[in-house]
Design a protein around this nucleic acid. Structure first.
Lengths: 189, 189
DNA sequence: ACCTGAACACCGTTCAAGT
DNA sequence: ACCTGAACACCGTTCAAGT
């Protein structure tokens, strides 16, 4: 007897589609991945994707959800490390999906569903960062400080910098997050 | 007798095309502007654009060049104002072309010509900012500081924030650019 | 319910043909 | 040299038709 509750197979098939899309989106980018290529990767007819997921923006959102869930789960393992290291880790961790960062921003205003995802993403990640920064920066400046950090991370993803330069940006950002009395003194000379 | 030197008319026509493209790109965005729509705006056949400009990425680059030249010219008029005001001015000034910022980042790696433009843009604008920051920040941190500022400006353009929030980010950024002895004391309480 | 072949309305670009 | 109509190879999406 089938132990699968109704909808189980459908869910599985949908996951396969999204996994295929994730592979191609991360590898080749959203624009460079046609629905035909996605269907080929998943071994279905081109229009079958629409039966399981919806249009191309819905596929993108499903992929982003999967990447975000995985990223947040991974983040838990380093959430107790110093802020400077957390920042470095986040940038390197997100580098694999840097094309998608630019894609999301380019598609804002063209897909209401993606707009909503983007808003929720920022609310979620900025909430985490804000909590982490509490006590480390002036309370009145915390919102602006959070935004600067998020924008810097996004910038590090959408621009090709050397690893050393990425680290320098992270360190410079984090330099103002320690309490003044803990700051290293200026090097003499 | 024609006082136009050879190539003059061609240049004019090309400028008309680029002006039409600029109008549509700024208004509707790059992706939403088809070559057919651009040709219609300029009152030529769809394929005539290729005779004067090149492919769609070349049109984009021509538009970006025009916008950048105008922006730099406008900047000269406020270049002597305090850094905090320069930053605010830059963000508000660039807001009109915010869709194009995301477009450039999304198309990086897909057009070699656009890659080159993007590199030159950053070299130019970061050079200006670096010169302005000289003496206002620790010399060893100036590169990272410049990048943080540029990324923050780009972030303010690709995200919908209220004007008050945009100002808060600019002010928070600029807060570390004044020499420590000039910084306002913490508000009492 | 699930999947598809065929079609639709586009898209950027090319090219032979005109002037 | 300049401009075009027509075509090309795509694209995302829809839909009637199958099982």
């Amino acid at each position: 007897m089938p132990s699968t509750r109704p909808g189980r197979d459908r869910e599985e098939k949908r996951t396969e589609l999204v996994d295929a899309a994730r592979r191609l989106f991360v590898q080749d980018g959203y624009d460079a991945t046609s629905m035909a290529a996605l269907a080929r990767e998943a071994r279905v007819a081109a229009n079958t994707v629409y039966w399981y997921v919806g249009d191309k923006d819905d596929v993108l959102i499903a992929v982003l959800d999967a990447l975000l869930a995985e990223g947040l789960a991974d983040y838990a393992s380093i959430a107790d490390r110093p802020l400077r290291e957390q920042l470095r880790w986040t940038v390197e961790r997100l580098r694999g999906m840097r094309r998608l960062v630019a894609t999301v921003h380019a598609r804002i205003g063209r897909s209401a569903a993606l707009d909503a995802w983007h808003d929720a993403f920022h609310a979620s990640t900025e909430g985490i960062l804000r909590a982490a920064l509490e006590g480390a920066v002036d309370p009145g400046a915390i919102d602006a400080e959070v935004r600067i950090a998020v924008f810097a991370v996004e910038g590090l993803l959408t621009h090709e910098l050397a690893e050393q330069e990425r680290r320098a940006v992270c360190d410079q950002l984090a330099a103002r997050w320690v309490a003044p009395e803990d700051r290293p003194g200026r090097p003499p000379g």
